[in-house]
Every structure is written in C-alpha cells, then in structure tokens.
C-alpha cells in the first residue's frame, strides 16, 4: 500500500511531572489502512489518543493530520479537520437521549450561528434528526432513538458512541477498545459496523486487546511497551517479534 499518510506522530513524548509515559514515539497511519495500537496495560496507548485528540498537550514532538501540523491546535478544532474518537469508558452524555447525543455529534457540520439558534426540534422529522435516525438504522439501532442513554445495555451504548463519533464526518476515527466488554454477538455487530465505515473510506486507528478482533479488522499493527514503539507490521509479523513476545510474557500474542 502506498496511500498517503493520514496521521503522523513525529518523535512524540509526554511526561506527567517526572513520569515519562511516552518517549520518542514516531509512526504513520496510512489513509484507509486500518491500524491497531496494541501493547500491555500502561504502555501508553490511551495517552497517544489523548495527545492526538488534544486532551493533553505533548511535551515534545509533532502530530500531523494528513499534511497539517495539529500539535498546537485547540482540541475542539480537531474534529473539524477530520479527527474523531471514542472513549474506553463510553462517554455518552447521560442527561441526553440517544438521538440528542447524535445531534450533538453532528455539531461540526452545523456550527453556524443560525444552526445554533434554529428551534429545529419543533419541526417534526427535521433533516438533522432524520439523518441521525438513518445512521442508527444502518446498524439496526433505530429502536433506541428516544431512549435515555443511561438506561441502555453496555453493548448498545458502545455502538451508539461509535455512531456519534462517525456523525462528524471525520476521515480518521480513533476507537479506544471497541470490542472490550462485548459478548460474541455484540462483537460481530461491532465488526460489521467497522467494515461499513471502512467501505466509506474512513481510516481507523484502534486500541484493542482482543487479537482475534484486531486480526479481523486491522491490516497493520503497532506495538507499544513502556511508552515506546517496539514493533510494527502485520499482526503475524509482530507476533513473531521476540520483543513483543517478551512484553506480553508469551501469553496474549503467542
């Protein structure tokens, strides 16, 4: 594959006080090449997501989205340039319904002052609502549209979180453990959902512990350990890497 780079980390480092959680991390995610970020707990995977999405500022290094340097871009502008993410501990807005969460997710595509103050929810079946319903329907979740988020089962919330992340129309989607905590049926639904996104040309960057899932979804794997990259390649390649095997103590990756 010789596709253009979608995301480039250039010598990225992060320290909290004296604790260095990432050091000299460089890698590239190529456009439309679904990539997984794996590694033992505490390897710094979620920190990478937080740096790229702008929740934290890096201590050193640069972050490029496509050709564009977003290292110092305020976190809230990043979604408008094509970057969207989900959270490990699903962070849907608990005071809102499913559909309302999704409408919030559309924000970057409806961010004019007029969009802000238009009482569109007086209009039955307004196009924003319809679009959100359609997005739900695509993955068979439309029955939950007007439910309160907090009452829904974990697997459903997880997929709604994913739908919300896609509604901004981002080109790069970062998912933090999409398959964690799901039963086999839900995992299959999640995978089908991701296949759909891949077909639409969305580039996926996934943190995941389930290697079976990674194998089915991703083409490339980057392995982190103690805040450093220790291997990169296809899953089969990195699984043969002695450093990776010792990092996992031979259990998960073997």
């Amino acid at each position: 594959m010789s596709a253009a780079p979608a995301l480039t980390l250039d010598h990225l480092g992060k320290a909290f006080g004296g604790l260095r959680v990432l050091r000299d991390l460089s890698f590239t995610v190529r456009a439309q090449e679904p990539t997984a970020l794996i590694g033992p707990n505490g390897a710094g995977k979620t920190t990478v997501f937080n740096l790229v999405s702008g929740v934290y500022a890096p201590s050193e290094g640069r972050i490029l989205l496509g050709e564009r340097d977003i290292t110092h871009m305020p976190s809230r502008r990043r979604i408008a340039v094509g970057l969207s993410r989900s959270f490990q501990n699903i962070r849907l807005m608990s005071h809102l319904t499913v559909i309302e969460n999704l409408i919030v997710g559309q924000h970057v595509r409806a961010s004019g002052l007029l969009d802000l103050v238009k009482p569109f929810r007086l209009v039955p079946n307004h196009r924003w609502r319809r679009e959100a319903i359609d997005a739900l329907a695509e993955c068979g979740l439309e029955a939950y549209a007007d439910e309160s988020v907090s009452a829904l089962p974990y697997g459903i919330r997880k997929r709604i979180d994913l739908v919300r992340a896609t509604l901004a129309g981002a080109s790069l989607l970062m998912l933090d453990e999409p398959a964690a905590g799901l039963n086999p049926t839900e995992t299959n639904a999640m995978r089908a959902h991701l296949e759909l996104l891949k077909k639409r040309g969305v580039t996926l960057l996934i943190v995941e512990h389930d290697m079976h899932f990674v194998d089915q979804v991703c083409e490339r794997v980057i392995v982190l350990n103690f805040g450093e990259k220790i291997a990169e390649g296809t899953l089969a390649e990195v699984q043969r890497d002695p450093q990776v095997r010792s990092a996992y103590l031979g259990d998960e990756a073997a």
Partner: peptide, 27 residues
C-alpha cells in the same frame, strides 16, 4: 423555543461532559 435548538442541547451536553463536548467541536 430555545429549548428546541442546538444551543440548549449543547448546554446540557456541557453539563454532562465538558471534555467530550469540547472534542465534539463545541466552544
């Protein structure tokens, strides 16, 4: 009227989770 707008929705979203609201691009 205001309660039927995005503005009101965003206020509730901010109350629920300001970090995520920010990442959704909301000021």
């Amino acid at each position: 009227l205001l309660s039927r707008t995005r503005f009101a929705l965003y206020l509730t979203a901010i109350k629920s989770d300001p970090t995520v609201a920010d990442l959704m691009g909301i000021n």
